[in-house]
Amino acid sequence: MVVTGKGGVGKTTVAAALGLLAARRGKRTVVCEVAEQERLAALFGVGDVGHEERELAPGLHAVSVQPNRAKEEWLHHQLKSATLAGVLGGSRMFQYLTAAAPGLSELVTIGKVWDLAQLERRTSGSVFDLAIVDAPSTGHGLAMLRAPGTYANVARVGPISRQAGIIDSFLHDSASTGVLVVALPEEMPVSETIDFERRLADEVGMQVEQVVVNAVYPQRFGVEEAERLRSLDGRASPSARAALRAALAEHERARGQRSHLRRLRRRVKAPVATLPYVFEPELGRDEVELLASELERRL
């Protein structure tokens, strides 16, 4: 399961909540962070996760994929020899070449995620039923999903082409891979989600399976109630007025969100689920558990 979305919309939180939900349902699950992120660790209040799988909760593991380590693992497997892999990995020329080769780090990253999802893994570690990848934001996420197909084409023959082809087919098989887009009920994230769905279909040939709109305000006040709050503004003391204005501001925000949500629902083909705004200063394990329960009700 690939989780993507515009920067700052809460991809990691939603990926973690999905992971908890899957683990609750008895699936052996691993959530993969990419690009050397370590946000899951902070969310679950544990130390850095690193490139090896680490258990966050019963049945839920996490891993932070490091492109360099993934590249070494791939070489090792490819050459079937640690010595040769060492020779190559240690070569500065190779380092430069792979650092410069466009899309290679995306390829080995998605390759590692692919490996985690296999019942017979190439790298050592546990076996998982489900790998959830906390993917880069939409533009870079698209590049990551495109990388295997590109390499399968560019390399034409040889091991890279074969490998990339296998991963590409895995990604394109909707029975094995799903793409979930996280959005906020705001102008830019909604536009980007609509755009992403179209580009994913046009450029990569994949479909978005689910859209999750994060941090939706509750609709607390009816139109008449809001009207009453507004009319009392002049009669209230300053301290009461502060509360009235805060309530009205939130009412306006909630209304704005609803209209963005409507636009999203009209414009995307994938089903749209919502998650409530969590009024907690910082999110932790408890809040992720709560969001997992919300997802359970809505998906």
Binding site: V87, F94, Y151, A155, R156
Partner: peptide
């Protein structure tokens, strides 16, 4: 010119990547 170490690396690299990709690069 660039010496043996890199030469070995180059031939290993061919094995790991497939020649076409190298030629394009």
């Amino acid at each position: 010119v660039i010496g043996r170490g890199t030469g070995v690396a180059f031939s290993v690299m061919k094995r790991a990547t497939g020649i076409d990709l190298l030629e394009d690069l």
